[in-house]
Amino acid sequence: MFMAQSPETLGVGVAADVMLPRIARVRGLRLDGPETWTLDVEDEGNAGSFVPGQFNMMTAFGVGEVPISFSGDPSNADCVTHTVRAVGHVSAALTRLEPGDVLGLRGPFGTGWPMAEMAGRDVVIIAGGLGLAPLRPVLYHLLAQRDRYGNVALLYGTRSPEDVLYHQELRSWGGRSDLEVDMTVDHATTTWHGHVGVVTTLVPHATFDPINAIALVCGPEIMMRFAIGALRDAGVADEAIYLSMERNMKCAVGFCGHCQFGPLFVCRDGPVFRYDRVRTLLGVKEL
């Protein structure tokens, strides 16, 4: 088993740098879902330096720090964007910030989605609930360089129509001829005219060549397991499936061990993992 590294093993200076939040300022916020706000944050010199899939540690001063994935355009060198759902004290405090308020940022941390490996291949993106946020930068990137990729399909599932994130953007993407967008909700009333059913049921309807496709999956872990099952049924190899894991990340650099996942640390070795590398761990109840 790997052991969490202490700050001393990396050198105090390095540890001090990565553990020290830098001051950033909120440029704007918008409500993008129930209790879910997207923050544009001025992060001088650091915007545009992340890989889709990575995360920042965001500090609400006086309250605490939480890991939040980047959810904005990776080519935007002007500010960084994070989508935060108010579920605890820290995330709620972050969503109560106003333009001009300061917050702390550490990062970017973790592994990103395999952007280079997607070139020339079909890309199947399966997002569940808030899991669309860490995948949105991938979509920005793919659409900005659309010619470099094969078919691109976004399959998105949420609990109900009210829980759908990024309404306007999804509508706009749905109107594009070079992007297949299929969306479903688990439960709905008759006022909803979209699909009803779990997100895995969208997989057989998506257009992709399983031999030449790469799949990115992000959402609640149970949903990801079932989605991966559907992808495998469709003929996608384990080595072509990537998922973003969520665990209790604290230090973000593999010091503290809070996010240990078998021999791995989700903050440092993930959050994006290739499926075949975590396949056996996903089946372990105690993890």
Partner: peptide
């Protein structure tokens, strides 16, 4: 069988616990 599995997943209400 596919519909049974899908129904089970639906029953789990996986998005219920906000993350």
């Amino acid at each position: 069988v596919q519909r049974l599995h899908a129904t089970r997943l639906q029953l789990l209400d996986v998005y219920g616990a906000k993350s």
